[in-house]
Structure formats: structure tokens, C-alpha cells
């Protein structure tokens, strides 16, 4: 099990964002959106949240996803990782069919 703080990430939405806000942001702003269930492993972390959890893929090399800390709530992170992008494309449950909202 890794630690998210050891990874180089960008905050897309700040701590305290609601889970709904994170999902809506991803669905609205990313052309490629995949949905996973709680407990899905991404960058060696288990993803927590209300299913379905939306992951946004950018240029085939960055993933934006919600990350939850018990004391602070949920925030959206963006992390670069081509291998993880490919794994998501192969293992995520469903993909949003339409383009941008």
C-alpha cells in the first residue's frame, strides 16, 4: 500500500469538495471518463466513495480522480501515469459514451 503524499499530484478541486462536486467536475471537463466501484486500486491506493466513481483521462497520460481523507473530505487529484491510464482503460467498469456535457 502506498501513500498518496509520496506521489507528485496536482489538486484540481480543493479539500472539502463534496463527492458529487468531484464527479460532476470530472464528467463536465474530461472527454474520456471511466467509472469504477469503491475499492478500485489506483496508484496503489484504494479509491473510496459513492459509486460510480468517475475518473477523467487527459491526453492518454493523466488521470483525475477523487481522493478521500477521513478528516478533510474529498478532493480531486491529477496524477501523470501512462501505465495507470492503460490499466484503467482495460479494467474500469464503464466509459462515458458522450463527449463533453
Amino acid at each position: 500500500m502506498g501513500c498518496i503524499e509520496n506521489l507528485k499530484y496536482e489538486k484540481i478541486l480543493p479539500l472539502g469538495a463534496s463527492f458529487k462536486e468531484c464527479r460532476e467536475y470530472v464528467e463536465k471537463n474530461y472527454p474520456e471518463v471511466w467509472y469504477v466501484e469503491p475499492g478500485y486500486k489506483l496508484f496503489d491506493e484504494y479509491i473510496i466513495g459513492l459509486p460510480p466513481i468517475a475518473l477523467g483521462i487527459e491526453n492518454g497520460e493523466k488521470i483525475t480522480f477523487p481522493y478521500t481523507k477521513p478528516c478533510h473530505g474529498t478532493y480531486l487529484l491529477r496524477i501523470e501515469g501512462k501505465e495507470e491510464v492503460e490499466r484503467v482503460r482495460k479494467t474500469a467498469k464503464t466509459k462515458k459514451q458522450a463527449g463533453y456535457r
Binding site: E37, P38, G39, I48, G49, L50, P51, T68, G73, T74
Partner: peptide, 15 residues
């Protein structure tokens, strides 16, 4: 008692 708690509850329900 916060949004994170509900996210953990949803996760436990699912798992």
C-alpha cells in the same frame, strides 16, 4: 459526521 464519512459508508456498503 462529514462528507468523507458518507464516502466511507458507501464504500463499506459496496464492499
Amino acid at each position: 459526521h462529514n462528507d468523507a464519512g458518507i464516502a466511507y459508508a458507501a464504500t463499506m456498503c459496496h464492499l
